[in-house]
């Protein structure tokens, strides 16, 4: 799988809830952020956790504004959260 996203792209995290070992926290699903960096390709923890063979997935650092995540956020408008997310959880907006 080759990386299809790049720094600066605006992405939305899938708002899906399959049962299993998932490293995309619930609080970030469905939220929109900006790709900061492509880290390279890494084994998919969702299959590795079950000892199944995995392909490597592009992994990105994605930045979200606090105000996008929590409507009542009271700190600075620039405050942010960054997460490391696999490409199959991201949709380009």
């Amino acid at each position: 799988m080759s990386a299809t996203l790049k720094a600066g792209d605006i992405v939305r995290v899938r708002d899906d809830y399959p049962i299993g070992h998932i490293r995309t926290p619930v609080y970030i699903r469905g939220k929109t952020g900006r790709v900061e960096k492509y880290f390279g390709d890494f084994g998919n923890p969702e299959t590795l956790a079950y000892c199944l063979p995995t392909d490597d997935r592009p992994l990105y650092k994605v930045r979200f504004l606090q105000s996008e995540l929590w409507p009542t956020y009271s700190g600075s408008a620039r405050d942010s959260v960054e997460l490391d997310l696999y490409e199959h959880w991201l949709e380009k907006v």
Partner: peptide
Amino acid sequence: HEPRAVLEEFGTALPDDVEVRVHDSTAD
């Protein structure tokens, strides 16, 4: 979701013009 309140519990107060950036280590 409330990094500034948590930082204050550690005695750290940051001015509003400083961006607080939280890194949630979710992968490798």
